[in-house]
Design a protein around this nucleic acid. Structure first.
Lengths: 199, 199
DNA sequence: GTCTATACTTCGATAGAC
DNA sequence: GTCTATCGAAGTATAGAC
């Protein structure tokens, strides 16, 4: 049996899903609280029973999305010792997480942060940074183990890899020809071995 | 001597620059026509003497930005025959163009297209597609010449390279440690030769 | 070409009944 | 927990004087 507060949290969780969908499709500013309420099958006023403000919903979606990536990558790396396997595992976990809920990650990635302020903004920025640092630590570790070149800074590797991974959500189609595992393989290959025919 | 219409066009051109700056910093929806007018040193009403609407300004900035990239890359490639030099030239021209006016390209890249509709939306989409096709043609050409692997589709190469290049504008700092030429070199190296130490 | 004034909408958020 | 009603604040765009 579910208590009242749990039922409330369920409604909130569902609202984060439909909210992320609307934010991803129409944009945060373009989505009204009336749109959000309609997607929750309630009226405008009821939205404020579950969230302090529209900004509050944006904050919850963004923080959850970013935390999910860090959690998934951290968990996937646990116990893995082989240098190349760690890179592959990290990329796979990152990609499966963001492509698994693209709406939330579009919401979190987009420059919607402009609509956040103060404490909530800082928490979202911190969550994003945690994600980047996790990857950068892996890059440094891979360099130390001899897998990656030393003549590029770990930070540059990190930023370029994040570019490659994160923005796939804007063009990747789950129902297209390219399977997620194939995309992961392609990213890994370009990143590790490059694109040259002779390499 | 400048005619009246040329002077009007000068004002419009300047407005596109300050408009792109505001759109990039605050976002399209977050920027008001009063903000735009203030940046042009006029009042709200005067904005509409130069542009049909706020959307019209967004359209002009976006189309100009995307056309600039295609023009710069096309021009840079002209006459170059060496396969590797073409890839390097293409990446360099693309990167120099977008990092040279990041505000316009942030405006054009962002999901601001949601605010466009009808004919103008189609023109912006077409300009974007032209840019992608130019790159994809180069990828196919590089595969035909034996420079690039054949076991990855030219389209996938294109999308991954565009990810890597385009989203640098959100973190690259011209006044930082990494010079533009160094960044171009890094992108080229990761794309062509990968990141492996032994390669 | 630029201004002021304002019409017209839309939206975020609150109040209070049920 | 949900509703209706509404306040008040912006914001886009227009009208018309100068």
């Amino acid at each position: 049996m579910v208590t009242k507060s749990e039922r409330g949290e369920l409604t909130r969780a569902r609202a984060r899903v439909v909210g992320a969908k609307l934010f991803a499709e129409k944009g945060y500013r373009e989505t009204t609280t009336r749109d959000l309420a309609a997607a929750m099958n309630v009226t405008n006023g009821t939205f404020y029973y579950y969230f302090d403000s529209k900004e509050d919903l944006l904050y919850q979606i963004s923080l959850e999305a970013l935390s999910d990536v860090t959690a998934a990558v951290t968990s996937a790396l646990d116990g893995e010792v082989d240098a190349e396997a760690r890179i592959k595992t990290m990329i796979a976990a990152h990609m499966r997480t963001i492509l698994g809920s693209p709406n939330s990650h579009k919401t979190a990635l987009e420059v919607n942060w402009r609509s956040l302020a103060g404490e909530t903004l800082e928490q979202v920025i911190a969550a994003r940074r945690a994600n980047e640092e996790l990857i950068q630590d892996e890059m440094a570790r891979a360099q130390a183990s001899g897998l990656l070149r030393l003549n590029t800074e770990a930070k540059v590797f990190t930023l370029l890899l994040l570019n490659t991974m994160n923005w796939t959500i804007f063009w990747y189609r789950p129902d297209g020809e390219l399977a997620i595992d194939d995309l992961i393989e392609e990213i890994l290959r370009v990143f590790l071995d490059g694109s040259r025919a002779s390499s």
